[in-house]
Design a protein around this nucleic acid. Structure first.
Lengths: 247, 247
DNA sequence: CAGTGGTCTAGACCACACG
DNA sequence: GTGTGGTCTAGACCACTGC
């Protein structure tokens, strides 16, 4: 089960093995899994290596550690996904809906102002501007305008933006997305939005502004979205920081 | 600087030392901090202990590791707080506003239905129901209804709910809050809400439903809030999961 | 090349939970 | 007392970066 000579790190192999047992239902929610020392003996590896695997799964929400008692399969594992940053495409698939895209506009424009600044594009640089209507199960769900530095994702084509931009950046360009900050506010649809989304004027809209960054903090994209208030709920899991109550 | 015989773990002391240097500006955004081996020699501790400190600070957003290059102070450290779950009181303070509370109702009611189920209160159990208007700089910001199991926070009084419930639970009861899931949706104010919040009927509202859990997954509270759309933006930082693109 | 973080070992002692 | 996770050691080899 564990290959010590695989290029895959041992701790990663253990993570996958544990997740598989949980997914298969071999270990159920609330069950105690083998102790770190048992894993260590089972696979003939050091306990610190086991701990690295378990620590990762704890922070991913799969496991719960309890001092003096043991390590347990987390309840509510459905909620694991809530903690991770996802693209529209991944979000909709996670909700069991079919994502779709209608491209309204795809162009490069010269960068300037706060958008250029946020994307760290120097004066005179170009950026992609992509306007899309995102749909779920063939009904309009959101209106999206995305900005990316042309320099960072040079060679982006219209075909690339019909699916997940995150998927493209990660799989085609081999970049690693780190995190995003998102601002959400409530608004009402004006004429233009109501027409594009097929809702009444004055109907509720959820506005989301997203700044995405790569792992090394390079700004990747800015996205302005307007989601239909009658079809979309934003769902997020948040952990309590160890340091919040102090500082 | 490091006391090996302190009851505080060494890795924690190192974390604090590093954070202090960052907060003081001794190490600035983008600066490389000493290598793990340097820390190890500096403090006469093993490198694995240093790594534990650095790993924690990386996941808290203070540091960035780069293979073969070094460890750097993260940019945008203002955004660190965005990733942590906060109470209303902490949230407003973080925005530089003065939080306030007007208590509309405080009572215990017999638990039943989906709320009792979510809070894991057995048939016949009681729960607190707390209705509050939360204000920022003395202007109404949100209408909140909170439910807690009476059994879990027995002895809660009216005075306890004028400030941060999270603070009370953590500091007075000594519990550790783990995480929460939150659902956000856009809506418009009806008559009752518009009167309580001092806004027009039909004005945008941001509705937030929150389920909080302790570290061991015990359900702590349910909160339904309605925030004024003209005064409040929900801000959140989200990390990309290692596993999102695969599974 | 030297230096960095990434992984891993084979132990150790501690505080805690439980019977 | 036994078993658990929490912390810590003093090394080791690897892949990667940058000069």
């Amino acid at each position: 089960m564990i290959d010590k000579h695989s290029p895959m790190p041992i701790y990663y192999q253990i993570e996958e093995a544990i997740k598989e047992r949980i997914d298969k239902g071999e270990w159920r929610e609330g069950d105690m899994i083998p102790s770190e020392r048992e894993f260590s003996e089972m696979y003939h590896i050091s306990r610190m290596t086991v701990r690295q695997a378990v620590t990762n799964l704890v922070s991913d929400g799969y496991l719960i550690r309890q001092i003096g008692r043991g390590t347990f399969v987390a309840r509510r594992k459905i909620q694991q996904k809530l903690f991770g940053l996802t693209s529209f495409t991944e979000d909709m698939k996670g909700r069991g809906m079919k994502p779709g895209t209608r491209l309204l506009d795809f162009r490069t424009v010269s960068a300037s102002g706060p958008i250029a600044e946020q994307l760290q594009i120097p004066d005179g640089g170009e950026m992609y501007e992509i306007k899309r209507v995102r749909s779920a199960d063939d009904l309009p769900m959101a209106l999206e305008i995305t900005y990316l530095s042309e320099d960072l994702v040079r060679g982006l084509t219209e075909e690339d933006v019909y699916g997940s931009l995150y998927g493209y950046v990660e799989k085609e360009l081999g970049m690693t997305i780190g995190y995003a900050t998102q601002e959400l506010e409530s608004s009402v649809a004006r004429e233009a939005e109501s027409r594009t989304l097929g809702i009444a004027e004055g109907a509720p809209l959820l506005l989301i502004k997203r700044f995405s960054y790569l792992e090394d903090e390079t700004p990747l994209e800015i996205v302005y979205s307007a989601y239909r208030g009658d079809r979309y709920k934003f769902v997020v899991g948040m952990h309590r920081n160890r340091t919040d109550s102090n500082g």
